[in-house]
Computed example of a mutant assay.
Amino acid sequence: MPTPYGAEFRQDVIDVARKGEAPLAQIAKDFGLSITTLKRWIAISERKDSGAGPAAAESAEMRELKKRNR
């Protein structure tokens, strides 16, 4: 399913939100988003930036190892 917002737009909104110059609710309203969407985008961005969770290659490797163990 294609995303209705491009990656560049998402990053721009996240950058504005991270500056902290306005409340998230106001930023979401200004960009025509729901506050929930904005919070989710920020959370996803933070996970990517922090490197939390397994990378895609590690995840695929883990699935393969679980198959072998069974």
Rank of each mutant, 00 (worst) to 15 (best):
R70S: 05
S59E: 12
V13Q: 00
A25T: 11
E46Y: 04
Q11C: 04
G20H: 07
T3R: 11
R63K: 14
E64I: 14
P54V: 14
R10F: 06
E46G: 00
G6M: 11
A28Y: 01
T37Y: 03
P2F: 14
V13I: 12
A52S: 06
V13W: 01
P23V: 15
G20K: 08
I44C: 02
I35N: 02
E46F: 03
I14S: 02
M1K: 07
I14T: 02
I44M: 04
L33N: 01
G6I: 13
E64N: 04
F31Q: 03
I35P: 00
T37V: 06
V16Y: 01
K66S: 13
D30Q: 05
A25M: 02
M1Q: 08
A57D: 10
K19Y: 04
F31H: 08
E61N: 05
A57H: 08
G32R: 08
G32P: 01
K29P: 00
K39N: 03
L24K: 05
K29G: 00
T3Q: 10
P23H: 15
T3K: 07
M1N: 07
R68G: 05
G51H: 12
P2R: 15
N69L: 15
P4M: 14
S45T: 10
R63P: 00
A52T: 11
Y5L: 07
A60G: 05
S50E: 11
T37L: 05
A7N: 10
L38T: 02
L38E: 01
E58C: 05
S34K: 11
A57Q: 12
G53K: 10
D15W: 06
R18E: 06
R40C: 08
L24H: 08
A25L: 04
R68M: 13
Y5W: 11
A28E: 02
R70Q: 08
P23D: 15
F31P: 00
K48R: 12
S50D: 09
L33F: 06
D49L: 12
S34M: 06
D30W: 04
